[in-house]
């Protein structure tokens, strides 16, 4: 693959909103991302697909502006010359073979040598052995890869992917991560959505956290990770003497409160890592044996809710 030419690899949302009747799916979101890999992270139903579809010209923004390489995508098919979209839905033309589908994409992009471009894209996603088979016979992971091949056959400067790792096995996932990294290294802007923190952790340099249609946090992955861990937490502790341990914890500045409940001790702390550093020492000093220490609210949803409430 060559370095992309054409409009700048820039994806911009300016106070973009989208509502369906009375339901607000995306609420006043602004961000600007350039070359590199950026993740749209959020729980299911947060508005990630709505944002990607607005970017891809498949939804009209209800308010605000949405620009790809400086151009709006809505009612402007010309942007698809330098944009590729990998939709979340699995439907592809089942009656075509993988190669026929990617060649169709190449021809519709008016590429000078569609067959060669298709062969390159198929090799890139590692789908050569199955390229001659009808897409109807493909597994979920193979469908995902043929969609990606179709989206990058014209070497787009901007690649939008909606939950690209769905249905992929770990080996394919790793291959895809390498592929996206190499594409980003060539100066492309890659924006992918995900609800799985581990995927984002391994791939994205920049993270946009979306919750309930709003941009909850944006920035460098490590920074977001810190925000996620260093927030008020509740731990459940079981020990040989909960009452004594509670008194010992309450003497610590990092601990907000402790309460006994059904033979367990609930400890409210200022931040995750601060507590994990002191818990063993406090128990030892109080001569109490710890049986169990577990964070209670580490679901991604609670993390997102916290990030949203912080604003």
């Amino acid at each position: 693959m060559t370095a992309p030419a054409g409009p700048p690899a820039a994806i911009v949302l300016e106070r973009a909103s989208r509502w369906y009747g009375n339901v607000v799916a995306v609420n006043d979101v602004s961000f600007s991302v350039g070359a590199g890999i950026t993740s749209l992270l959020g729980p299911n139903g947060a508005g990630k697909t709505t944002i990607l579809h607005m970017l891809a010209g498949l939804l009209r923004p209800s308010a605000g502006r949405v620009l790809l390489g400086g151009q709006p995508a809505w009612r402007n098919p010309a942007v698809y010359r330098f944009v590729g979209l990998v939709p979340e839905r699995e439907a592809v033309y089942d009656f075509l073979t993988g190669r026929e589908f990617v060649e169709m994409c190449a021809k519709l992009q008016r590429l000078p040598d569609p067959a060669a471009a298709a062969a390159r894209a198929i090799a890139t996603v590692d789908l050569e052995p199955a390229a001659g088979r009808a897409i109807g016979t493909y597994s979920k992971g193979m469908r995902q890869r043929v969609k990606i091949a179709g989206a990058l056959v014209h070497d787009p400067t901007i690649l939008l992917l909606d939950e690209p790792f769905n249905g992929m096995d770990p080996r394919q996932r790793l291959h895809m991560i390498e592929l996206l990294r190499s594409m980003a290294a060539q100066g492309r802007a890659i924006l992918f959505s995900s609800h799985i923190l581990e995927e984002v952790e391994r791939l994205a340099e920049q993270v946009l956290v979306i919750n309930a249609g709003r941009l909850a946090a944006a920035g460098d992955y490590r920074q977001i990770r810190r925000l996620m861990t260093d927030r008020p937490h509740t731990f459940v502790v079981r020990s040989s003497d909960n009452r004594r341990l509670a008194a010992a914890f309450l003497a610590e500045p990092a601990v907000f409160g402790a309460e006994l409940q059904d033979g367990r001790l609930n400890v409210r702390v200022a931040e995750f890592s601060g507590f994990t550093r002191i818990v063993a020492r406090v128990a030892r000093d109080a001569a109490v044996t710890l049986y169990e220490v577990a964070p209670t609210d580490d679901s991604l949803e609670s993390v997102f809710a916290y990030l949203t409430s912080r604003r």
């Binding site: 891809a56 010209g57 498949l58 098919p77 010309a78 942007v79 698809y80 010359r81 944009v83 590729g84 979209l85 939709p87 839905r89 699995e90 439907a91 592809v92 033309y93 089942d94 589908f101 994409c105 519709l108 992009q109 008016r110 969609k147 179709g150 989206a151």
Partner: peptide, 15 residues
Amino acid sequence: ELEDGSAVHLLTKPI
């Protein structure tokens, strides 16, 4: 194809 979503691949082409 609009119904099953496969039309997206056609709609996101510069045509």
